[in-house]
Amino acid sequence: AARAARFVAHFVGNVNMFEGKVAERTDKTARITGATGAQILVENAGNAAAAGADIVFAIRPEKIKVSSKKPADGVNALEGEVYDIAYLGDMTVYHVRLDDGQLVRASALNAARITEDPLTWNDRAWVSFRPDAGVVLTR
């Protein structure tokens, strides 16, 4: 638990936190349902994340993709609106307000940005991430 606390302390202010309850558990994955009913699928949940447990999924901004279209696989794809954009040299940081109100911070290297998919303020957008892209912490 101390290691997990250090991890969070190291990234405070620069990490997205998805809070919820473990709705379903398999050997490798846990399905987490948030307070608003939004669901995400996570890996690396460890033994602490038993069904019904309150957990937090912490994920760094660079591990989150932003797109104007829903990702084809639909895994961990959450819809919202572009709230703010910051251009920081070689990186762009997007703040997307999800439909459930949560603010998600995602960053992308400008070289990797898709010019055919230019997102701007107030656009509808999808954020998505891989089930193994973050760390599961117990509350």
Rank of each mutant, 00 (worst) to 15 (best):
V22P: 07
V75D: 11
G20W: 14
T33D: 02
A4E: 05
R139Y: 09
W121L: 15
I64R: 09
G37A: 11
E62A: 06
Q39D: 04
V135I: 15
N47E: 14
V136E: 00
G134P: 12
R6S: 00
N14Q: 14
V42S: 04
Y87C: 06
K21D: 06
D73W: 09
V66D: 07
T29E: 14
K65R: 11
S67P: 01
P118W: 06
W126Q: 12
F7R: 01
V66H: 05
L41F: 02
Y94F: 15
D27S: 12
A1R: 03
S128R: 00
Y87G: 10
V136P: 07
V82Q: 06
L88Q: 07
D100A: 07
A112M: 10
G134T: 00
E81W: 07
A5N: 08
D73P: 12
G20A: 14
A35Q: 15
E24L: 05
A108K: 06
K65F: 12
G80L: 07
S67A: 11
A38C: 02
K65C: 13
M91Q: 13
W126H: 13
I40R: 01
E43K: 03
T115Q: 11
D73Y: 13
V82A: 08
A112V: 10
D117M: 10
T115I: 12
L78A: 08
Y83K: 13
V15P: 01
E24I: 08
F18W: 10
A49G: 00
E43M: 09
T138S: 08
G80C: 04
A51K: 14
A4C: 04
F11S: 01
A58M: 11
F11E: 07
G101N: 11
L88T: 10
E43G: 08
I59L: 00
A108S: 03
Y87A: 15
V15Y: 01
D84E: 12
D73N: 15
A58K: 07
N110M: 03
V12C: 02
N16Q: 05
A1K: 06
A77Q: 07
S68N: 13
D99G: 14
A53L: 08
I59S: 00
N44A: 11
G74W: 04
A51S: 13
R139L: 05
V66S: 02
A111W: 00
T120I: 13
R105S: 15
T138E: 05
N14W: 07
F7Q: 01
E62Q: 12
A45D: 12
E79L: 03
P61T: 02
A45Y: 03
R3Q: 15
G80M: 05
V66L: 06
A4R: 03
S107M: 04
A50I: 14
V66P: 05
